[in-house]
C-alpha cells in the first residue's frame, strides 16, 4: 500500500488566527479515512486548503495518483486540483440549483472533455460524439448513485437526501482517485444514512476510489472508516483505527469538553 495523499505540516493562518496548525495526514489507496473533531476545529478549512480554495500558509500537500508520479499541489487553483483527480462535496450543499440533475453531473465531466467554442458553434462530428458520450457517462454515474429517477428534475426540487447524493454524483463524474466528502450525512434521516454508508463502501470497492470524509455522525464514522484522524483547534490530537480512537482518552476529553451531541 502506498500513500496517494500525503499532507505534511499543513498550516493555515487567517490574519492572526491559526486555523490549521502543523497538521499531518495520509491516505492510502482504497482507504476510507475520516476526519473528525468538534465544530470549528478546522476540518472544512483543511478541505479548502487541499482542494485549492485556500492557499495554505505553510506545509506540503503531495498527491500520487495511481500510475502517475508524485506531485506537490499547494496553491494550485481548484480546477487544476480537480483535474489531478481530487473531487469534493460541500457541507452546505452547493448544487447548480437551476440546472437539471443530469446537467449537474455533466458539469462534472467538463474537465475530462475538450470541445471548445468553435466546435460547439459548428457542431463538428467530434463535438457531437463527445456530447453523446458526456450524456451517457453522466447517466451512468447517476445510475450508480441511484439518482436516475430524477434525471430531468431541477436540482433545487430534489429532496434533501437526494441533493446530498447528487453532490457525490457530480464529484464522481470528474473521475477522481480521491473523493473528499464534507459531512455527507448531515441532515439525513437514519434510513438515508444507512444507504449512504452502503454507497460509500460501494464507491470504494467497485470504483477503487479512496475517500476522505468529515462527519459528525459517529456511528457512520466508526462503521465506515479504516482509519480516523481527530483534530481540535487546528491540531491533530489523535489518529488510529476506530477502536483505538474510541478508547483514546484525549479524544474523549476533547469531545466531552466541547461537543456532547457529536458523540450521540
Amino acid at each position: 500500500m502506498k500513500d496517494i495523499l500525503e499532507v505534511k505540516k499543513l498550516t493555515m493562518d487567517f490574519g492572526g488566527l491559526r486555523a490549521i496548525d502543523n497538521l499531518d495526514l495520509d491516505i492510502q489507496e482504497k482507504e476510507i479515512v475520516a476526519l473528525i473533531g468538534p465544530n470549528g476545529a478546522g476540518k472544512t478549512t483543511f478541505f479548502n486548503c487541499i482542494t485549492g480554495l485556500y492557499q495554505p500558509t505553510g506545509g506540503d500537500i503531495v498527491i500520487t495518483p495511481p500510475g502517475k508520479p508524485a506531485e506537490r499541489i499547494n496553491g494550485l487553483k481548484p480546477n487544476y486540483v480537480t483535474q489531478r483527480g481530487l473531487a469534493r462535496t460541500f457541507q452546505n450543499i452547493r448544487l447548480f440549483q437551476n440546472m437539471t440533475v443530469l446537467e449537474n453531473v455533466m458539469i462534472g465531466r467538463h474537465c475530462r472533455t475538450y470541445a471548445g467554442v468553435a466546435s460547439a458553434m459548428f457542431k463538428t462530428a467530434f463535438q457531437r460524439r463527445e456530447e453523446n458520450k458526456i450524456v451517457q457517462d453522466s447517466y451512468e454515474v447517476l445510475e450508480k448513485i441511484g439518482l436516475s429517477e430524477y434525471v430531468n428534475e431541477l436540482a433545487k426540487n430534489l429532496p434533501y437526501g437526494a441533493q446530498r447524493r447528487l453532490e457525490i454524483a457530480r464529484a464522481m463524474a470528474t473521475d477522481p482517485f480521491l473523493l473528499l466528502l464534507d459531512e455527507p450525512a448531515a441532515g439525513m434521516n437514519p434510513q438515508e444514512t444507512r444507504e449512504l454508508d452502503d454507497l460509500i463502501i460501494r464507491i470504494r470497492d467497485r470504483e477503487g476510489i479512496s475517500i476522505l470524509l468529515i462527519e459528525h455522525d459517529m456511528k457512520l464514522v466508526m462503521s465506515l472508516s479504516d482509519r480516523i484522524f481527530v483534530v481540535d483547534y487546528g491540531r491533530k490530537i489523535a489518529q488510529g483505527t476506530p477502536d483505538e480512537i474510541k478508547e483514546n482518552p484525549v479524544v474523549i476529553k476533547a469531545y466531552l469538553g466541547e461537543d456532547l451531541d457529536a458523540q450521540a
Binding site: 480554495l53 480546477n79 480537480t82 473531487a87 469534493r88 447548480f96 440549483q97 437551476n98 475530462r112
Partner: peptide, 10 residues
C-alpha cells in the same frame, strides 16, 4: 449558479 462549486468541479 455557483462560482465556487463550479471551480471545484474542474
Amino acid at each position: 449558479e455557483d462560482e465556487i462549486a463550479c471551480q471545484s468541479m474542474g
